[in-house]
Design a binder for these strands. Structure first.
Length: 582
DNA sequence: AGGGATCCTG
DNA sequence: CAGGATCCCT
């Protein structure tokens, strides 16, 4: 066999960057900002909701609370007094590393202030202690009910209001997903209060529950929604009699919770019409894209020789997710509130607008956008008419639909204002975990749009700074990628390779090792085959260009960039989990 | 002018 | 990996 084939003549001393500093240990680049002496306000005030002493220490409130607790105890025999959610929830990850990141981030100029505290917590206090009190009582009630429900769910969870996506049914793309924090529904041990925060996932259906449990859950849910309705009514009644300040405040806060307030899908190109980018359909796969891949040899040598690794092929499996997340549509508002309270569903459901940016690149073709499996057949025909190889399953592992109930970011914030313990910990900065995730995402997308990034980092509070930082990450990723490609292509040429089709990147090639080391240092993620295909194609394009002497043109790489930019694959849904590569 | 991408540098 | 410079596109 041709020694070149598959072997990819890789320079033995290829790897120019030896051991990089451990990513986990590496701190965020942000402190540089300080070093540069940027004159940013240092006296960033922490989230006022954490510091407002009235909120926690008002003795009067405390007394009231004690009384209400007694009452509530009658409803549910929850033994554990809950921690006050506000501080805990907002505090986010407790790991010191993240805390450092967050602290650092505060030194940056923030385009927008952090999550606002309840607007009335300070300014309008004089007029409405009663209202606040009511809200507090309501929250406490709900908390207890939540706890109660969790206790009542020995293994599975109640049919969640709003949880339409389940991810455990789908094999994970990588081994790194240990399942912790993924709502491991399998081992909910009952009354562990620490689990409360972890139960962020649940199956969307209760139909697998024993009927007794189901009945119990049903009752509990009714109790919950009833209590909520009652409490809300009473609060609203009071509010309506109160000065207008509170009314507007509450109105604003609830705006995001009422689905009617904002249409579920944008008028044009809403979620349901514009589903996720198609599985593995390369951007620009439409014929009109003028994709110069006709002469590419992508599919030919690859598919027969490198069957997909079984480790990562479990995906297409997911039970079809309910498109609309709400289990009780007639009570959307309550359900959404409860969904938040119960910590159900990943934040992506709530803040996760569909990556319109992804479709804005190229794959927005509506006809191809509706049938995920249709796209499976599409791709090979695009890449190579001759070799309609089936798509590597690793590229298919996402379902193109999301629950259509969405909240604007503002809605989420509004909810966070009302509810002291949002299920999402919005990070104001990027941490090493985000970087790692971004690197893994690079296997699927080399040119992510900012909207796509927003969709896949639902736990990041995006602002201009964060967005450009993340975009810059990918720019750096690309830089390294293209450098490796060019280097290997030149090496192949000097090694006497004449046929670019011989250049196929295998998992045991030097080039692959270099790439894997860079983007997947721990090797705990199995690189998808689609990435190998794209990388092979990139290599071949570089090879052709260099062999043709095009590299004398200062902008000779541009056409290559253009080609590669159209070959982004869809990113598996699992990446939308804020805690994904935990 | 502004945003995005690359190139270059540290 | 980040910052700055530069180019390109709109």
């Amino acid at each position: 066999m041709d020694p070149n084939a598959g072997l990819l003549p890789a320079p033995s001393r290829a790897c120019p960057q030896p051991a990089e500093p451990c990513m986990e240990g590496r701190s965020s680049p942000l402190p540089r900002e300080q070093g540069r002496g940027a004159s940013f306000p240092w006296n960033q005030v922490p989230n006022p909701s954490l510091t407002d002493p009235d909120w926690f220490w008002d003795e009067h409130i405390q007394a009231k609370r004690a009384r209400v607790e007694t009452i509530i105890r009658g409803m549910c025999l929850s033994p554990n007094p809950l921690v006050l959610g506000g501080a805990r929830a907002r505090d986010g990850p407790s790991c010191p590393e993240k805390a450092r990141e967050r602290k650092r981030k505060q030194d940056l100029p923030m385009q927008q202030p952090p999550l606002k505290p309840p607007a009335g917590s300070q300014g309008s206090r004089k007029g409405g202690p009663r209202v606040r009190e009511q809200l507090r009582l309501l929250k406490q009630q709900l908390r207890r009910l939540q706890e109660h429900i969790l206790q009542a769910e020995p293994r599975d969870s109640a049919p969640g209001p709003g949880s339409a996506k389940q991810r455990d049914g789908c094999g994970r793309p990588g081994a790194m997903d240990s399942g912790r924090h993924q709502g491991s529904s399998g081992d909910l041990p009952g009354v562990d209060e620490h689990k409360v925060a972890e139960v962020s996932q649940q199956p969307e259906e209760a139909r697998f529950l024993p009927s007794g449990t189901r009945a119990l859950l049903e009752i509990l849910r009714k109790e919950l929604t009833g209590a909520v309705s009652q409490a809300v009514d009473s609060v609203l009644q009071k509010v309506l009699l109160d000065p207008p300040g509170h009314l507007t405040q509450l109105g604003r806060s609830f705006q995001g919770l009422v689905p009617g307030g904002r249409s579920e899908t944008s008028p044009e190109g809403g979620a349901c019409e514009n589903p996720l980018p198609l599985a593995a359909l390369p951007r620009g796969a439409q014929p009109q894209a003028g994709c110069p891949l006709g002469n590419s040899s992508l599919a030919k040598p690859l598919s027969p020789r490198y069957p997909v690794s079984p480790r990562m092929t479990s995906k297409p499996c997911q039970a079809p997710p309910t498109n609309c997340a709400m289990a009780v549509p007639s009570r959307m508002q309550e359900s959404q509130i409860l969904g938040q309270l119960l910590g159900h569903g990943p934040p992506g459901h709530w803040s996760g607008r569909l990556p319109q940016g992804a479709s804005s690149q190229s794959h927005s073709s509506p006809e191809s956008g509706l049938r995920p499996w249709g796209a499976v057949r599409l791709r090979p025909s695009v890449l190579s008419q001759q070799y309609p190889v089936p798509l590597a399953p690793t590229c298919l592992e996402k379902l193109p639909f999301l629950p259509s109930v969405k909240m604007e970011q503002g809605g989420l914030q509004a909810a966070a204002e009302v509810l002291p313990f949002p299920s999402v910990h919005i990070s104001e900065g990027l941490n090493p975990g985000h970087l790692k995730k971004a690197k893994l995402m690079f296997f699927f997308t080399r040119y992510p749009s900012s909207n796509l990034l927003k969709a896949y980092f639902p736990d990041v509070q995006f602002n201009r700074c964060i967005t450009s930082q993340m975009i810059k990450w990918f720019s750096n990723f690309r830089e390294f990628y293209y450098i490796q490609m060019e280097k290997s292509a030149r090496q192949a040429i000097s090694d006497g390779v004449t046929n670019p089709k011989m250049l196929v990147i295998l998992r045991d090639s030097e080039l692959f090792r270099a790439l894997n080391m860079h983007y997947n240092k721990g090797n705990d993620f199995e690189v998808p085959d689609c990435f190998l295909e794209v990388a092979s194609l990139t290599l071949q394009e570089f090879f052709r260009a260099v062999s043709a002497g095009k590299d004398s043109d200062p902008s000779w790489k541009k056409p290559i960039y253009k080609i590669i930019s159209k070959l982004d694959s869809d990113i598996p849904e699992i990446f939308k989990s804020p805690s994904y590569p935990q």
